[in-house]
Nucleic acid binder design. Structure first.
Lengths: 244, 244
DNA sequence: TCAATGCAAGTGTGATCACAAATCAAATAA
DNA sequence: TTATTTGATTTGTGATCACACTTGCATTGA
């Protein structure tokens, strides 16, 4: 094998990063994930293979496989008509999702509390200040950036839990609650938003002190907020407005 | 629509069950799931699309989509070579899986403890006696049947937890630990098996008493057993035998 | 006017083909 | 004999086609 010998003998090869061979299907899958977590699709919206293929400038093949994967992790829903849609929001489902997230993400942050390196803690601290400066010049409500930064903050912590089993589950949970969260964030914005960064600061403080219990409690408060907010909003709407 | 009117006006339509339209992909996916949970594939075994398609008497298309779905739930592993294999067993992964299963299945059974109907409890009790009579005439070690019955018992309980979010996660966990479990059960058989049904009886008793704490503890003992057994076996092997 | 029928466009599913990358084996050189 | 190379086979990926089912709309009937 000429490649193996080259790697050993050639000193410049050590400076070369291996070029990733990402498939089209992977890119489609990642793109749809990003859109789902960011809440770019509305609940109950139906997606067609050919429509997405056109939008993503590819053929139907990578799209249908990506959709199949998203359906298995419950990020999308397969109707009996064989059409696929993003799952609608119901109160039961929101409670269900929140309970699962408290259980699993709470465990992950408790594990991470005793395993995070100073370097990793410095990373999430820098994210904190990045959050602050975004708030400082909040001329425009950059919801997309807010969502992205929030996700990066949380997963920087979760990655430190050292569990290759829990992390994909958390990703699946974020995928499923993405549409809900987006709706909640919009509701936040129009209802005099509470300081989101405050909760993150509490989390960072607990993580720096390696206090698993406090970290878990702060996390629960953080992720519960949009859910209870949206829940109250939905209940209020159904009481006075349309019951459906 | 003639179908809708027929449903309302025609009395014989009420006796007709809707014919399910299961796709080939669904069948392939279910079949591979069954094989994985049952441990029919060995750890580190590589699977080829065309090989599976031939074995399942279908084309490559349904197989590749089923494989993609199984990869996303970590039931299979995609190598950088783009070939797929069933994940190998490591001590770290086993501990990781067991911890996640204790966390999530423990929560599920605790939820189910206060929600199981008398009818559902009667069902798992009947499974208990079915287990006993299988033990009574254990002329041949029917590992397959043992695995199937064990799965049916646990999921009859989990289904009662009422969470549409937790159950798919538990299925994913069983998918991932399937190969390990199979190895453990074989090891059980050759090492004078402890009474598996005893743990299930304890679980049933706790469920009947709606005692969530006891049910959870009994479940943890039940699912931990094959893992700690296999762990000790692997550690013993690595100490005296091959370190790899 | 309204419901039922029939047609046409759209959609998911499975099969097949083309192509590039990887794997394996025989052949060759040191 | 051992290491290297070369060629053939296998394999995954993406594109395209054929078919069946669904959906939506226009037409027809009462």
């Amino acid at each position: 094998m000429q490649k193996a010998t080259a790697e050993k003998s050639d000193p410049i090869a050590a400076q070369l990063a291996p070029v990733g061979r990402e498939t089209v299907q992977d890119r489609v899958y990642s793109e749809l994930r990003r859109a789902l977590i960011g809440g770019l699709f509305e609940p109950s919206q139906v997606l067609t293979i050919r429509g997405l293929a056109d939008a993503l400038m590819t053929s139907t093949m990578p799209v249908r496989e990506a959709l199949g994967r998203l359906i298995t992790e419950k990020a999308l829903e397969a109707l009996p008509n064989r059409s696929v849609r993003v799952p609608p929001i119901t109160l039961e489902r929101m409670d269900d999702l929140l309970r699962a997230r408290i259980l699993i993400e709470g465990e992950a942050i408790a594990l991470a509390a005793t395993r995070m390196t100073p370097r990793q803690i410095a990373t999430i601290e820098s994210m904190l200040s990045e959050w602050d400066e975004m708030r400082a010049l909040k001329h425009k409500k950059d919801v997309d950036r807010e969502v992205t930064l929030n996700q990066a903050f949380h997963f920087e912590i979760y990655r430190a839990c050292g569990s290759a089993v829990l992390i994909p589950m958390i990703e699946s949970l974020w995928l499923q609650s993405g549409p809900c969260i987006r709706v909640a964030i919009y509701a936040f914005s129009e209802a005099g938003e509470v300081d989101t960064a405050h909760y993150h600061r509490t989390i960072v403080k607990a993580m720096a002190a390696q206090n698993a219990r406090e970290a878990r409690e702060a996390l629960v408060a953080d992720i519960s907020r949009p859910f209870v907010f949206l829940r109250n909003k939905l209940e209020a709407d159904s009481k006075k407005g349309i019951p459906a």
